[in-house]
């Protein structure tokens, strides 16, 4: 039986992420998921972009691809089409996936490319010093919104659903068991799957918004999310929570099947 240890480049640890950063939790969940599914390391590509989450490839024993900022899904589309037998798992932060890479996300979901996209959403650009991202909640303090973020945020999960993804879910690093389950479902899903994981950035977002240290931030995340079913019954002001759960899980032909069908 495979162990998560087989997927982790131990000699590369400790990783570069800050104390209390949730990226390590997501990395562990990924290695556990791959072990549980018994996917051989040489049949996995971990593809990432730029920013804190972009470094994830430095810590795995699988194939690794780190592209340019925001373009991960476009690179991954090429990798997948050339090597469909390999699982391509894309890890992109909120800035990576929703800002500079937003268009690629829409089109990867629309084509329903058989990729797994994990979006660790730490609500800001950590690597560059805590600037706001499209997914930063409005009124948040960041290093580029000292008076509070003027822009609204958007729901990247609903975007992926509308665009055509086969599987979309959201959870947090607080909900480790749920994260594990969703991750395995996402990896197994044929077609485009997206898992958004809310994760603490105590160094910037937590500090700027007085949310406390890592443990307090996790508690804050736990208080800030509610199950999807309950969220759907809410309206108006109450809907300021994040929902968590499985937003869509549906069957649709993936991009390569369509290409081969047309070819």
């Amino acid at each position: 039986m495979a162990s998560y240890r087989d997927y982790l480049a131990w000699e590369r640890l400790p990783h570069l992420w800050c104390a209390g950063c949730g990226h390590g939790v997501i990395l562990k969940a990924l290695t556990l998921a791959l072990a549980a599914l018994e996917v051989p390391p040489d049949k996995v590509v971990v593809a990432s972009g730029i920013g804190c989450s972009g470094r994830i490839g430095d810590y795995v024993t699988t194939h690794r691809f780190q592209g340019t900022h925001g373009r991960t899904l476009a690179f991954a589309t090429g990798i997948h089409l050339a090597r469909p037998e390999v699982k391509v798992i894309c890890v992109m932060g909120d800035g990576d996936a929703a800002a500079i890479g937003g268009n690629h996300l829409i089109h990867a979901a629309r084509r329903n490319v058989d990729l797994t996209a994990i979006v660790p959403n730490n609500l800001n650009y950590g690597m560059t010093g805590g600037q706001f991202s499209p997914l930063t909640p409005p009124a948040s303090i960041s290093s580029t919104s000292r008076q509070g973020k003027a822009e609204p945020a958007f729901d990247i999960c609903h975007l992926a659903v509308v665009a055509g993804a086969s599987y979309v879910a959201r959870t947090t690093v607080y909900h480790v068991t749920e994260m594990q389950k969703f991750l395995q479902e996402a990896i197994l899903k044929k077609g485009f799957s997206l898992l958004e994981v809310l994760t603490p950035c105590p160094t910037y977002y937590g500090r700027y918004n007085a949310l406390g240290e890592a443990a307090q931030m996790l508690e804050w995340l736990n208080r800030s999310v509610i199950p999807l079913a309950r969220y759907r019954q809410m309206s108006g002001d109450e809907a300021r929570y994040w929902w968590r759960g499985r937003l869509v899980d549906r069957e649709a032909p993936d991009f390569l099947s369509r290409l081969k069908g047309a070819g």
Binding site: T77, G78, L81
Partner: peptide
């Protein structure tokens, strides 16, 4: 990007 991915 896709070209580079396919090449690798």
């Amino acid at each position: 990007a896709a070209v580079i991915g396919a090449s690798v």
